[in-house]
C-alpha cells in the first residue's frame, strides 16, 4: 500500500552483464547516447555487475560536457568502438 493504493512489488532487476549501445565514450567510460536510442542503457549500466558498452566513437577525456553526461563512467566497465 502506498498512499492508500495497492501496488505490485517488483524485486530489483540485476544482471551479471549488461550489453549497452551508446553514442560517445571517453577514457573514464562517461557516455552520451544518440536520440531515442537511449532505451534502458543508462538504467541497466547501473544494475549490472559488468557493463559492456558499444559506442560509435571514442573521444578525448574532458570533451564531453559534464552537465550532459548521461551515464557517468563509474557504471561502465568495458567500451568497444564499432
Amino acid at each position: 500500500m502506498i498512499n492508500g493504493r495497492r501496488h505490485v512489488f517488483e524485486q530489483p532487476l540485476h544482471a551479471d552483464v549488461a550489453l549497452v549501445k551508446a553514442h560517445l565514450a571517453d577514457r573514464w567510460g562517461n557516455l552520451v547516447y544518440h536520440s531515442a536510442a537511449r532505451n534502458f542503457g543508462p538504467v541497466m549500466a547501473t544494475a549490472a555487475r559488468l557493463a559492456v558498452v558499444q559506442v560509435s566513437a571514442f573521444v578525448e577525456l574532458g570533451s564531453l560536457d559534464p552537465e550532459a553526461v548521461v551515464t557517468p563512467g563509474i557504471f561502465v566497465d568495458r567500451v568497444v568502438v564499432a
Binding site: 571517453d26 577514457r27 573514464w28 562517461n30 547501473t46 544494475a47 577525456l61 574532458g62 564531453l64 559534464p66 552537465e67 553526461v69 557517468p72 563512467g73 563509474i74 557504471f75
Partner: peptide, 19 residues
C-alpha cells in the same frame, strides 16, 4: 577533465549500489 555532474539520487545509487 572527464568529470560529470548528476543529481542526488544517482549519487546515492553509486554509493548504495556498491560502485
Amino acid at each position: 577533465p572527464g568529470g560529470a555532474y548528476f543529481h542526488h539520487t544517482d549519487a546515492f545509487v553509486m554509493m548504495r549500489g556498491g560502485h
